[in-house]
Design a protein around this nucleic acid. Structure first.
Lengths: 136, 136
DNA sequence: ACTTGACCTTCCAACGACTGGAAGCTCCAT
DNA sequence: ATGGAGCTTCCAGTCGTTGGAAGGTCAAGT
């Protein structure tokens, strides 16, 4: 299987597969006579795993750990759970920040008439920081 | 006012102020005899504006537009409102994605016992994508 | 046999928004 | 004059790709 097929079947772009090889997330691929990378079903399974973990927002470093745990038949599931929970806390922090920002923005946009006139509470807030943009 | 003072008073690190100058977000500063950057209260007001806009998550390109509108006495507030609303839509998209990821993660972590045994629904899901990690 | 076009290779650069660090200059107080 | 804080420039690194150039390979069609 060439890299293009692997890309289509895994959902990971060829460019990204090469990148993953370059940073050591996946092993160096065997090469054909014409120096093309050659892959098999195991590589596909690996890449699908990686793709799903990335879509769940795990950083590449975590994906590496998850892969290692996946390949380790004797892993304790506690370690995986720990990684997932830590990542969730990260997400919760981001959610809270985004929600706070969203609230401020919604309030300001609501206060702003949004017409041809120049007076604008959004700019006033950015300029003087009186009200709600002090989100932390 | 030297760059260190400006940094302290604006909340923007000196390094970042130089970076903003280098990308043209703020004008090139006047220099002292010893080639130090010299700032005044207007620069401080500018930087505070930038700092608040950035904290609200506006990308630097938007901050540039907001700054220009702020300096334009004849701006229509509609333009500012438009920028703010577009940014809010962006935030809403991110919120939805994060929330979807969070739900999946919470479900998986809930299903995983997290003990010394190797069987782990989180890894199973990443490996075979049966359930809920197909968030889009 | 030759040509076309799709696919592959490597390498370098860019994205966004900084941040770190090295090497060296300036300013002020002691 | 010496020390140390603060400033200067420049280059590199962060994170995870992505874009593009220049060139090699492969299979199909004429």
């Amino acid at each position: 299987m060439n890299i293009g097929i692997l890309a289509r079947r895994s959902g990971v772009p060829a460019k990204t597969i090469r990148y993953y090889e370059s940073i050591g997330l996946i092993p160096k691929a065997r090469r054909s006579d014409g120096n093309y990378r050659v892959y098999d079903e195991r590589d596909l399974a690996n890449l699908r795993f990686i793709h799903r973990a990335r879509r769940l927002g795990f950083p590449v470093a975590d994906v590496e750990k998850l892969l290692a745990l996946w390949h380790d038949q004797r892993r304790p599931s506690a370690k995986v759970r720990e990684l997932a929970l830590a990542h969730m806390e990260d997400i919760d922090r981001k959610l809270e920040e985004l929600q706070s920002i969203r609230r401020t923005l919604a309030h300001l946009a609501h206060c702003c008439r949004g017409d041809e006139r120049p007076d604008c509470p959004i700019l006033d807030d950015l300029a003087h920081g009186n009200s709600s943009s002090d989100t932390k």
